[in-house]
Design a protein around this nucleic acid. Structure first.
Lengths: 243, 243
DNA sequence: ACAAAAGTGTTGCGGATACACCCATGC
DNA sequence: GCATGGGTGTATCCGCAACACTTTTGT
C-alpha cells in the first residue's frame, strides 16, 4: 500500500467560475427560418464578436436561476421551454484561463431554450448588440460557442421529434399548417407529407379543434387547434414520434 | 437608462469547486441483475454512507479526464462506455456550503458509465468499501446521489433502446440470449418476444456469427455472435430502435 | 372561373406481433 | 426419452408513405 497508494502527491483542486450560456431558439413561421439569439460582446476577450447570451453565476443563485436571469435580461417572452444542455469544461476553453499558471478555470453550463417568435420581444438596452440570427447564417462566435450552438441544434431536432415542445413555442391557438411549418423549418423539407402529418396528429387526440376558423389571404380558412395537456398526459414519458 | 440599468449592485460571482460523480452501471447476466457501483464515504460529511464514486476536479484536468480518473481508481475494465449526464448546481446540495455565508459552492457534473461485468475487476484498496449494488436495493445515499442515480437509470433505459451501448457491456463474443437477457433485465420483462427480437437484430446485419458454439448446461448450444462496428456504421446517428 | 390553401380518402407495402414448430444437447 | 434452451417459419395485423381527390375561401 505504501508505494502504490501515494505515488506522487496529487495536484491541488481547481477553482472555478461557472458560466451559463443559453442557446435560445425561435422559429419565424412567416419566413420559415430557424433563429438563434446572439449578443455582441462588449468586453475582452473576444470584444466585438457575437456570442451566445451568457453570464457568470452569482452567489446564492442556482444554475437554472442564472439561466432564467440572462433570458429575462435579453428577452420578454410569455411561454418558453428551457432545459440543461451540456457542461463544457475543457481546459483552455476560455482564454482568461492562463494555461501555465493554474489560475481559476471557467466552466460553461449551457442551457437550451425555445421561445415563441411572435410573443418574444428583444430587450435592446441601447448599448449592446442583440439579434436573432438565422441558424444557417451564424458567423464565427466567441469562445467555443459555435460548438455549443451545434450541440443545441442537434438537441432541438431530437426534442421536436419525440416531445411536444412545439406547443410551447406556438401561440395558444394555431392551425395545423402552423405546426407543420414549424416542423418543416426545423427538421428540413422532407420529413413528412402534410396530409399524413395531419392525420397522424389528429388521431393521437391531444389536439382539440376550437371550431374557430382563420383566414390568411387566399385559400380555404383553417381551423384553430389547441394543445390539450390533459389528453396528452398518457403520452408523457412514452416514446412519442411525430416525424 | 440611469434608473433602470443599474437598479442595485449585482451580487458578486460565486466561487466553485467542481465535483465529478459517476453513475457506473453493469449487468450481471448470470443473475439478471442491474448493478450500480457504490463506495463508502470515509470522511465527513456523510461519513459511513454509501455514495456514487466521485472526486473533485484537480488543476489541469478536464471534466472527462476527471471522470476517467475515478473510474480507473475503482475498477479495471477493458471496454466501457462513458458520457456526461447532467450538472447539479442547486444551492445547498452539499452541506459543506454554508448557506448563510456565501462561501464556496460545490457543483457536481455527473457522468454515466457502463462496464462489462465479466471483465470488470473492482479495486479494493483495503480501506474504503466498494461494491456492486443491485439497483433495486440501493440504500439512501449521501448528498443528492439518489437523484443522480435515478437520472442515470433513466438515461440507461433510453440509451439501450436507441443506441448500441449493449455491445460495450457484453463480452466480445456473446450469444443472442445474452443480449436478450441484458435487454430484459434493464428494460423489464415484457419488452419483446425473444424470437422476434432475434429476427429483427439479425436482419439488421451488424451481428456476425462467429460459427463457434457454446453450451451452457442443458439445451442446444448457442452460436456466439460478434458486433460488427463496420456494418453498423450506416446506422450511426440514425434513430435506431431495438425495443 | 380559377387559383390557393385546407382537409379527406384509398391503396399497397413493410414491419411488428403472436404464435407454432423444428433442432441439438444433457441427463 | 424427455426436458431444456436454441433457432426457424408463418399468418395476421397495423401503421404509414404516396398520392389522388374534394372542399372552401379570395380575387
Amino acid at each position: 500500500m505504501a508505494e502504490k497508494s501515494r505515488p506522487i502527491a496529487p495536484k491541488p483542486l481547481a477553482d472555478f467560475k461557472v458560466g451559463v450560456d443559453n442557446v435560445i431558439f425561435s422559429v419565424d413561421t412567416e419566413q420559415n427560418r430557424l433563429l438563434v439569439l446572439l449578443v455582441m460582446r462588449q468586453h475582452e476577450p473576444y470584444r466585438d464578436r457575437w456570442c451566445l447570451p451568457g453570464t457568470l453565476v452569482r452567489q446564492g443563485e442556482s444554475l437554472e436561476e442564472s439561466a432564467y436571469r440572462i433570458l429575462s435580461e435579453k428577452i420578454r417572452a410569455k411561454n418558453l421551454y428551457l432545459e440543461q444542455l451540456f457542461t463544457f469544461g475543457d481546459i483552455g476553453r476560455d482564454p482568461r484561463e492562463d494555461p501555465d499558471s493554474y489560475a481559476v478555470r471557467y466552466l460553461s453550463v449551457s442551457y437550451f431554450a425555445l421561445v415563441p417568435f411572435s410573443q418574444a420581444e428583444l430587450i435592446a438596452d441601447g448599448v449592446s448588440g442583440i439579434a436573432w440570427y438565422p441558424v444557417k447564417q451564424v458567423p464565427e462566435l466567441a469562445f467555443d460557442h459555435n460548438r455549443i450552438l451545434e450541440y443545441g441544434h442537434r438537441r432541438l431536432r431530437n426534442k421536436l421529434e419525440y416531445s411536444p415542445v412545439a406547443f410551447d413555442v406556438l401561440p395558444e391557438a394555431f392551425t395545423l399548417s402552423d405546426l407543420y411549418q414549424l416542423y418543416t423549418t426545423v427538421l428540413g423539407e422532407n420529413f413528412s407529407d402534410y396530409s399524413n402529418f395531419r392525420t397522424r396528429l389528429l388521431k393521437l387526440g391531444f389536439l382539440s379543434d376550437t371550431g374557430i376558423k382563420t383566414s390568411r389571404g387566399a385559400g380555404r380558412p383553417a381551423s384553430l387547434y389547441r394543445f390539450d395537456a390533459e389528453a396528452f398526459a398518457p403520452f408523457k414519458n412514452k416514446p412519442m414520434v411525430f416525424i
